[in-house]
C-alpha cells in the first residue's frame, strides 16, 4: 500500500529511529511501512494518523479512492 510516511517524516526532519520511538515500534517496522512492504495494523495506522494529526486515508492510499 502506498503511503506518505516518508514525506511526512522528512517534513518534520525526523529520522526513522525517531519516528519509530514516537510510534513505539522498531526502526525496521518504520522502514518496511515507508517502502510499502508492510501494511500496518489498524491500531498502528491510527497511532500514525494521530501523530501527524491527519486522517488515515490522507496518509495511506489503497488505490481505491477516487
Amino acid at each position: 500500500m502506498k503511503n506518505r510516511l516518508k514525506v511526512l517524516r522528512a517534513e518534520r526532519d525526523w529520522s526513522q529511529a525517531e519516528l519509530a520511538g514516537r510510534l513505539d515500534v522498531s526502526r525496521q517496522a518504520v522502514n518496511a511501512i515507508e517502502t510499502g512492504k508492510h501494511d500496518p495494523s489498524l491500531p498502528l495506522a491510527f497511532r500514525i494518523a494521530r501523530l501527524f494529526d491527519m486522517r488515515i486515508e490522507d496518509i495511506f492510499d489503497d488505490g481505491e479512492s477516487a
Partner: peptide, 9 residues
C-alpha cells in the same frame, strides 16, 4: 525481500 530496494537508515 523487504530490504531489496529500500533505503533503510
Amino acid at each position: 525481500r523487504d530490504r531489496v530496494g529500500s533505503d533503510e537508515e
